[in-house]
Simulated scan of single mutants.
Amino acid sequence: MPQRSPHNDPVELRSPAMARFFTGVMERQMRGAFRAVRLARPGAAEVPADRPLIVYCNHPSWWDPAFCLLLARAAFPDRAPFAPMEAAALERYRFMRRLGVFGIAPGTRKGAAAFLATSLRVLESPDRMLWVTAQGQFRDVRDRPLELQGGVAHLMERVPDAVAVPLALEYPFWSEKRPEALAAFGNPLDGAEGLTARAWRGRLEERLRGTMDRLGALAAARDASAFDRLIAGRAGVGGVYGGWSRLRAALRGERYAPDHMAEGN
């Protein structure tokens, strides 16, 4: 394994203060872009505090990293999140190294080896966790068969005390101008099962596919009560029509309700 220096070690490079600041920035961005940010009940299963933790998810949107930052804060506040990113892209956004993001070269043996080495470094301490968009590239939530890259499977083989938690993400439109940002955690997989990397890959795909199917059914039902609302975004259509609707309600002595669909949470 190549010798590490503070200049290429994501653990040394990460700044908790900068990570908190950037998470706040992403929260404001999502608040403005979405009607609401929601997590399907019952949320994330409890993972023992002394176990290495990997959260792996599908990759439907540009918003996924921002959403994962918010979910990490909400579901696992005592663990510092780290995540891989294509090295070429990270060169354009070098500040993200201070957030726990590390570069990889996908599709190469050298890149795969670097991903494993850096991920193992992250998982050395239980106060850290690894987040991976395991499809490797953008994919529609309806794409089947679901195919994941092999990195998480190799980690599960090499770290038998690790826990892998599947996460499904989706961004549907319901009844408002802005879409919903929806997430659902699935049941964890325990590395103590002692499978080979090939067997792990099949198990990881199966568990994430089931989690995505569950979230898809909840999204189609449009039932806000099935979710905890993490962020209340911007409601109503805005503009001239929104102003007229507000004025009309005032003239009638009615309470103005910008949403088309009432919800209780």
Rank of each mutant, 00 (worst) to 15 (best):
P179Q: 11
A235V: 00
V237S: 12
G216L: 03
V159N: 04
T196I: 02
L130Y: 06
V122R: 06
P52E: 07
R97S: 10
Q135F: 01
G111Y: 08
R246S: 11
P106W: 03
C57P: 00
G103Y: 03
A197G: 10
R79F: 05
A183Q: 05
Y256P: 03
P42M: 03
F82T: 04
E193T: 00
D161Y: 01
A220M: 05
M212L: 07
R222D: 14
S119P: 09
A184F: 09
A153I: 06
R35D: 14
P77W: 04
P52F: 07
A17Y: 06
D143R: 00
L247W: 15
S245Q: 15
A235L: 05
S175A: 13
R198D: 15
R4E: 13
Q3M: 05
P65E: 12
L208T: 08
V240Q: 14
A226F: 02
G236Y: 02
L70I: 08
F22C: 05
N265K: 10
P145R: 02
S15H: 04
A105R: 14
R97N: 14
F76E: 07
S245R: 15
L39M: 08
A249S: 13
E170T: 00
V55T: 04
M30W: 14
G238L: 10
V37S: 13
L146F: 06
D223Q: 12
G100N: 05
I231S: 13
L148K: 04
A113V: 06
N58V: 02
D223P: 07
R139I: 00
K177M: 10
A257G: 00
F67Q: 15
G32T: 03
E170I: 00
M212I: 05
L218E: 10
A113E: 11
M26Y: 12
A88D: 14
L123Y: 06
E176L: 01
A250T: 03
S119C: 11
A75Q: 12
E206R: 04
A80S: 10
L70N: 11
E46C: 02
G233C: 07
A220D: 14
I104D: 13
P48N: 09
G107I: 02
R73M: 10
R209F: 08
L208A: 08
A49W: 09
W131K: 02
R252G: 14
G103P: 06
F185T: 03
R41A: 00
P126I: 03
F227D: 04
F67D: 15
V237F: 06
R41D: 03
R97G: 14
P60F: 03
R94Y: 08
R252H: 14
L69M: 15
R248L: 13
V25F: 12
A257I: 04
L90K: 08
E91G: 04
A184P: 11
A235Q: 07
D140S: 09
V152R: 02
P2W: 04
L148H: 07
F82K: 04
Q149P: 01
A33L: 14
